[in-house]
């Protein structure tokens, strides 16, 4: 039995301990907002927060999250009001939208640590999050808006 907190709720799971957190979230807990893109930690679509830090949930075995706190896109805010979500809407970031939960979770954890990032800092922090639709310019802008550095 593995115990962890997901989006503020205690979960006790009798699941294969090797199962990556990604699939625990999606198939066991029904939280489908966290996406599968590569299974190798190469694309960032599966990014969630583990004790507040951005991690690739496809590379995080369930056994390693015992007693820890996980936040997914569903738990980032109850109503889509997190500054990143607001900025993502405002800058009209999504095209297909598939990678965006991972992008938003990565950006949210980054901004929590680096409230006023420089452009190279943004590019470095977001380098592991791929978007095939090519929304990078808008993501960059949304991060600047969310950081409060662009009025």
């Amino acid at each position: 039995m593995i115990s962890l907190t997901v989006n503020g709720k205690q979960k006790n799971l009798d699941t294969d301990k090797d199962m990556p957190l990604l699939w625990v979230l999606r198939d066991v807990l029904g939280l489908k907002g966290t996406k599968f893109g590569c299974g190798q930690g190469l694309c960032g679509s599966c990014t969630v927060h583990l004790d507040g830090k951005a991690v690739r949930s496809c590379q995080t075995p369930l056994a390693s999250v015992e007693g820890r706190t996980v936040t997914t896109i569903e738990g980032l805010s109850t109503d889509g009001s997190h500054p990143c979500q607001v900025a993502w809407r405002g800058e009209k970031v999504p095209q297909c939208g598939y990678c965006q939960p991972g992008q938003i979770m990565n950006a949210a954890a980054f901004l929590a640590e680096t409230p006023s990032p420089s452009e190279p800092q943004i590019e470095k922090a977001m380098a592991g999050n791929l978007c095939r639709c090519g929304t990078y310019g808008r993501i960059k802008k949304a991060i600047r808006v969310a950081s409060g550095s662009v009025k």
Binding site: R26, G30, F36, E74, Q85, R89, G97
Partner: peptide, 21 residues
């Protein structure tokens, strides 16, 4: 016009084929 699905996309409730249950 904003995409009709934009809110679902940024809150993780947009449903893709891979999310079918």
């Amino acid at each position: 016009r904003d995409l009709v699905d934009v809110n679902a996309m940024v809150t993780g409730s947009a449903r893709y084929g891979i999310d079918v249950e």
